[in-house]
């Protein structure tokens, strides 16, 4: 049986793609992840898909987390998927959260997002889901 990975080794890149300026949720989640023991890097606003994959590669992120509230999550993730493959980051956990209607969750999963959260997801659930998925990946 694999040993539990140490959380301080788990690096999370939290990115705000596109032009959406709603960063309250991203910052709240970033604080929660830091308090939960993860190593978190927050990109700030207005990241192009290229900026995100480069940041993820340079940080050697285990988790790529996106926060989108403008409604453009599908076009953003579609573009990002191509780059994630190109940069050979498809083994990393990819999660997305924000104002994402339930009917879009399946579409995002099909694109390749591993877990989708919405504005009512609790911090506890987000932290737990990341831990669980990271464990799954480690097995």
């Amino acid at each position: 049986m694999m040993s539990t990975p140490r959380k301080d080794k788990i690096r999370i890149l939290l990115a705000k793609p596109g032009l959406d300026g709603h960063d309250v949720g991203a910052k709240v989640v970033a604080r929660a992840l830091i308090d939960a023991g993860f190593d978190v890097r927050y990109t700030g606003l207005r990241q192009r898909p290229e900026d995100i994959v480069i940041a993820a590669r340079d940080f050697d992120a285990d988790v790529i987390a996106l926060s989108v509230l403008s409604g453009s999550h599908i076009p953003i993730c579609t573009r990002l998927k191509v780059l994630i493959d190109e940069y050979q980051l498809s083994d990393r956990l990819w999660i997305a959260g924000g104002n994402i209607p339930a009917e879009d969750h399946d579409c995002l999963r099909e694109i390749g997002v591993d877990a989708v959260f919405n504005t009512s997801s609790s911090l506890t659930d987000i932290v737990a889901a990341i831990e669980e998925k990271i464990l799954e990946n480690a097995r």
Partner: peptide
């Protein structure tokens, strides 16, 4: 929309998926 607010034209690469959205 966000491109108008952030100073990008509708045909800018930064505007993809955002034109007329919010």
């Amino acid at each position: 929309d966000l491109p108008t607010q952030c100073g990008f034209d509708s045909d800018d690469d930064m505007s993809k998926g955002e034109v007329g959205r919010v």
